[in-house]
């Protein structure tokens, strides 16, 4: 990707986010549910309600509401959460790091586990292990993240409780964090007791989000590797005495990762969407969990802010994937 391509992509990204903003704004005004009704006390008079509505600008026309909100967003002001009465940006800033850490852990787990299994499967071509692996992977492909989450709650939570069932960190651990990136901060400050506890809390939601990704990586990568392994250059390298493992990793892998990378990017954006329900199941204090609360409370400014944040992440991931693909492939184009 050249610099002008990149500028182009960024420009498109801004346009896309604008579109997302308009759609979310309109959709939220169409669906029924009144945020004010959620916050008033039973003794409120109609005058109180009208005052509140005016306070949050809900008495204005839709185009006007959008105009005010959009101008504020451009200035970096996402408004005030109606249910929590705090700045939306601040709330998102507190929760997003937890979700990012979880999502990246699941991404790393999915890619590494999937990559290792695909490599082993490729090494085991023409043995009984290969069809067995394909069969098991087929089953894994059919199980979505929230089903994994529930199964893990049963298995690792109830029957064999090795990992904590909910939360992000043990509240009795009196650790003070300077940032909201607890995992990274505990690692950097070499606070291993906190790090271990964070990881233990993360294992189950990470598996729930990462296992479906691993299954997809296994299938795509194994297919691409099988295709690459029958190429003449692999044959020549084999004749020259290259070890089977090096044949897979050095000869085949770089030519096979293209399709997997693209799919992983797509899957990662799905996974960020998946954090909403998985975080809820494990009471993990991330952005997704907050999104559900925001929806329940009809907290319009907060929902808008969260959706725009998710949208921005999706777009950034896609641009990143293209950058990596271009870097991996010296021909400058991704081949299937």
């Amino acid at each position: 990707m050249t610099a002008s391509d990149l500028l182009n992509r960024l420009f498109m990204a801004v346009l896309t986010l604008l579109g997302v903003a308009v759609i979310v704004f309109c959709l939220l005004r169409i669906v029924p549910g009144d945020p004010i009704a959620m916050m008033i006390s039973p003794s409120a008079t109609p005058a109180d309600i009208a005052a509140l509505r005016a306070h949050y600008g809900l008495d204005l026309g839709l185009p006007q509401q959008f105009g005010i909100w959009f101008m504020d967003v451009l200035k970096g002001n996402f408004g005030t959460s109606i249910s929590q009465r705090r700045d939306v940006m601040e709330l998102i800033g507190e929760r997003l790091p937890a979700t990012l850490e979880l999502a990246f852990a699941a991404l790393v787990f999915g890619v590494v586990a999937g990559g290792v299994i695909a490599t082993l499967g490729t090494l085991a071509r023409r043995t009984a292990l290969d069809p067995a692996l394909d069969f098991i992977n087929g089953l894994f492909l059919a199980v979505p993240d929230f089903v994994w989450a529930l199964a893990l709650v049963l298995l690792l939570g109830v029957f064999w409780p090795v990992f904590p069932l909910s939360g992000r960190i043990d509240p009795t651990l009196s650790t003070y964090f300077h940032t909201d990136f607890y995992l990274i901060e505990s690692l950097v400050t070499l606070n291993f007791s906190a790090f271990g506890d964070l990881i233990a809390h993360m294992v189950m939601p990470m598996l729930a989000l990462g296992l479906p990704l691993a299954a997809i990586v296994v299938r795509t990568l194994k297919e691409a590797l099988a295709e690459a392994m029958v190429q003449d250059y692999v044959l020549l390298a084999r004749l020259k005495g290259m070890s089977p493992l090096r044949l897979v990793l050095q000869e085949a892998l770089r030519n096979a990762v293209g399709p997997t990378l693209t799919l992983t990017g797509v899957q990662f954006t799905f996974m960020i969407g998946g954090t909403v329900i998985v975080e809820r199941i494990f009471s993990y204090p991330g952005l997704g969990n907050m999104a559900i609360d925001a929806v329940i409370n009809r907290d319009l400014p907060l929902i808008q802010g969260i959706v725009l944040t998710f949208g921005a992440i999706f777009i950034l991931v896609n641009i990143l994937v293209d950058l990596i693909a271009g870097w991996l492939n010296p021909r400058g184009a991704v081949h299937g």
Partner: peptide, 8 residues
Amino acid sequence: QTALNPAR
């Protein structure tokens, strides 16, 4: 075309 590894 196919006897040289495009990535090396």
